[in-house]
Design a protein around this nucleic acid. Structure first.
Length: 473
RNA sequence: GCCCCCUUCGUCUAUCGGUUAGGACGCCAGGUUUUCAACCUGGAAAGAGGAGUUCGAUUCUCCUAGGGGGUGCCA
């Protein structure tokens, strides 16, 4: 391919960057990277009423968080209205478009009869060849594209294959509103052309648009870009994605404690495959990504699989890094769920110390925080029900006896701690569990935690001994 | 209604005419074990239905059913 690849991600700023959009962006980004090309970003805000600055920010932030940087400055479609108008005028001058004065009730009638007669095309072309002098006074017309009536329009889609639509099924679509603003299909064609877009990778909901856009390209005698329409993502129940399941904005995934790399990996694997490979680095994704690898059927969003992948990414991340990421997450979280002392530097150091044990049982960064809560709480610890039950007199006496072995430890290292505790259990002729469980209770206030030696290490000698002393007899 | 697209284990998918239909998540059982996880081993689990093409169809074609998308002066 001698032509340089240019892809684009073109969201409309009517809400956050949802998961489907994120995947579309990822595919465009991967394809551009894989081919040494560029991915441009275009904000499709021709409908000013529906667009918002907040939505634009959310989309840009979401892309950055996911690590999908676009090339150059974002394009804003509304800012190109003048150019769109030029093209509309050109079409008008060449008689490839015309003014239409049809009234709403006339349109409604056409809709009804099209439905009744089983026709796909709605607009009947009533102004297509009418003399402009028939125009009613005081009505601002829309401008319609004069679509071919016969033959067929064929799209050679890189994902869907050859898609053929009979031209009689496509009516004359509006390319310019009565207020003079351009509509989507016109703006997309003009912008993709002007931006030099070679590949349009987008959701399959645009498949029918592709046929109409191809007709406009042909009328303008511009080259039609290569299309790739990616099947949509559905919710776990197969229905359209709703907020209840996957249709969260990507910032919600961040708040849920997912790592960008894991989400990228999951999204890449959802609808695209490279043999049996499940886990790949971003570099591998770029190396392997191609359009034929994209499947043709819609897929469902599966949180379990995402979580599993996220767990693996967490397991392979550094302890300090994870502590930092978890700390950075604090502002995103529900205040009532936070552990105490989250501003205490020492607690975060302890969390990093506890990380080897925490990260192997965490699916998300939120799990790390939840399971690492014991490093944050202040003495004296509250015992939960199970912990309280466990701490009978016998257990408390055992802990009292254990204190000596720990206090005499000079070197508070994981293996010396283990030696001390195991040694004590052996000496006391107790199974390790008889010592570990009560110990876990007094150190964490509960009955589940990372390995008990890890807990002792993370807490530090002074704090650990103090917590034991608080309860032991 | 009409147009377009899709259909392999519950889910994501491999297979590109000949396989005991493979992998991953989840699930079940066992192992390991200081709790919970993690981990290890094993297991159940799929070609929507019907025609055709072919020596041979999951794979190619058609029909049906089901699902999705579109059908806007939204994108």
């Amino acid at each position: 391919m001698s032509e340089r690849v240019v892809t684009r991600f073109a969201p409309s700023p009517t809400g956050y960057l949802h998961i489907g959009g994120a995947r579309t962006a990822l595919f465009n980004w991967l394809y551009a990277k894989a081919n040494g090309g560029k991915m441009l970003l275009r904000i499709e805000d021709t409908d000013r009423k529906r667009s918002s600055a907040d939505a634009i920010d959310a989309i840009l932030d979401g892309l950055r968080w996911l690590g999908l940087e676009w090339d150059g400055e974002p394009f804003y479609q509304h800012a190109r209205a003048e150019r769109h108008g030029e093209v509309v005028k050109k079409l008008l001058d060449k008689s490839l478009a015309y003014k239409c004065y049809a009234k709403p009730d006339e349109l409604e009638k056409m809709r009804e009869s099209a439905h009744a007669e089983g026709r796909s095309a709605v607009y009947d072309g009533m102004w297509r060849d009418r003399d402009p002098s028939d125009a009613p006074a005081g009505v601002d017309p829309v401008i319609r594209f004069k679509a071919p009536n016969e033959g067929e329009t064929v799209i050679d889609d890189q994902v869907q294959g050859t898609v053929t639509v009979a031209n009689k099924d496509l009516d004359d679509l509006i390319i310019s509103r009565s207020d003079g603003s351009p509509t989507y299909n016109l703006a997309v064609v003009v912008d993709d052309h002007d931006m030099g877009v070679t590949h349009a990778i987008r959701g399959a909901d645009h498949l029918t648009n592709a046929s109409r856009q191809a007709q406009i390209y042909n009328a303008l005698e511009w080259q039609v870009p290569i299309f790739a329409h990616v099947p949509l993502i559905h919710g776990p129940d197969g229905a359209k994605l709703s907020k209840r399941h996957g249709a969260l904005g990507v910032e919600a995934y961040r708040a849920l404690g997912y790592l960008p790399a894991a989400l990228r990996n999951y999204l890449a694997r959802l609808g695209w495959s490279h043999g049996d490979d499940e886990i790949f680095t971003t570099a591998q994704m770029i190396e392997w990504f191609d359009l034929p690898g994209i499947g043709r059927s819609p897929s469902r969003f599966d949180f379990d699989k995402l979580s599993n992948l996220n767990a693996q990414y967490i397991k392979n991340s550094g302890d300090e890094e994870l502590a930092g990421l978890t700390r950075a997450l604090i502002p995103e979280l529900d205040k009532t769920q936070l552990p105490p002392n989250v501003d205490d530097e020492v607690c975060w150091q302890k969390l990093a110390l506890a990380m080897p044990g925490l990260k192997e049982r965490a699916k998300t960064l939120v799990d790390i925080l939840d399971n690492g809560r014991f490093v944050f709480v202040s003495r004296p610890l509250e015992m939960d029900e199970k912990a309280g039950k466990l701490l009978d007199d016998e257990a408390l006496r055992t802990l009292g006896a254990l204190l000596e072995s720990l206090e005499t430890l000079d070197d508070w290292k994981i293996d010396t701690i283990e030696q001390a505790v195991r040694g004590f259990a052996e000496m006391a002729n107790l199974k390790l569990g008889k010592v570990a469980q009560p110990l876990r209770a007094v150190l964490t206030g509960g009955t589940t935690s990372p390995g008990i030696f890890d807990v002792l290490l993370a807490l530090g000698k002074d704090e650990a001994i103090a917590r034991i002393r608080d309860q032991a007899i």
